[in-house]
């Protein structure tokens, strides 16, 4: 393990959904600029861990520290502002807005942040190009393939220049070739921008795109992965 202060750290998180205990003391750290894969079987608590780390839900116990700030104690308004400016999220099913074209979907977070439409479209267009989906600007989500839609979702997650991207099974609905294209585009882009990524996946081949793996078993993180720095 590096001695570097982590950008995002969760310690001893517990979280229950009704009577289901999703997290039972999960501890995990993300270093700036790394891609961390969180793996585990269905129901192991992966998505709950992502939601806690991204400030989408608050843990029952434990702490989440992002860049020196306790996310779990931040008032809702500040938390929401931080999520909007510093974090990007990609889900299994892109969750693009079906009525909007690809370019409008990507431009939307910028326009919500007050960027003018022309400028927002220009920047959105650059991000569509980075993800290899230029030429599909005017398509609506229903007219795109799953892989195209997911690359548009990634462009939307990165367009505001977030420090951390949370990706929850981003290739879960894709075939292996589309999955490879989406992951390659994501990895190349975040390596260029230095964005930190938390990647939730149950697929080993997807996890292999990450620098490290943290495995969740029944709500607890197993630290049995070979650390790249040690392995090299």
């Amino acid at each position: 393990m590096s001695n570097e202060v982590p950008l995002l750290a969760a310690r001893a998180l517990t979280k229950a959904h009704g009577r289901t205990q999703a997290l039972r003391g999960a501890t995990v750290e993300l270093r700036a600029g790394e891609i961390l894969a969180v793996t585990g079987t269905s129901g192991s608590g992966k998505s709950t861990l992502l939601h806690c780390l991204a400030g989408i839900v608050r843990p029952d116990e434990g702490s989440v520290v992002y860049d020196g700030r306790r996310l779990d104690q931040l008032p809702e308004k500040q938390l929401s502002e931080l999520r909007r400016t510093e974090f990007g999220v990609v889900f299994q099913f892109g969750q693009l807005i079906p009525e909007l074209t690809a370019i409008d979907n990507v431009a939307l977070p910028l326009m919500l942040a007050g960027v003018r439409r022309t400028e927002a479209h220009k920047r959105a267009d650059e991000w569509l190009e980075r993800f290899g989906v230029r030429g599909q600007e005017e398509l609506r989500p229903g007219e795109m393939s799953g892989g195209q839609a997911q690359r548009v979702s990634m462009a939307r997650a990165l367009v505001t220049g977030p420090k951390v991207v949370f990706a929850d099974e981003p290739t879960g609905a894709l075939d292996s070739l589309a999955s490879e294209q989406v992951m390659t585009a994501l990895v190349h882009t975040v390596r260029e921008t230095g964005t930190t990524v938390l990647l939730i996946t149950h697929d080993h081949q997807v996890a292999a795109y990450a620098d490290r793996e943290a495995r969740l078993l029944d709500g607890v993180v197993r630290q049995d992965s070979v650390d790249l720095e040690v392995a090299q």
Binding site: H204, A207, A208, A210, E213, D224, V226
Partner: peptide, 16 residues
């Protein structure tokens, strides 16, 4: 398992 994952990361780095 950790050794297998490490090898998969190396191969993925080669192919990407």
């Amino acid at each position: 398992r950790a050794a297998h994952m490490e090898r998969m990361r190396q191969l993925t780095a080669v192919k990407t």
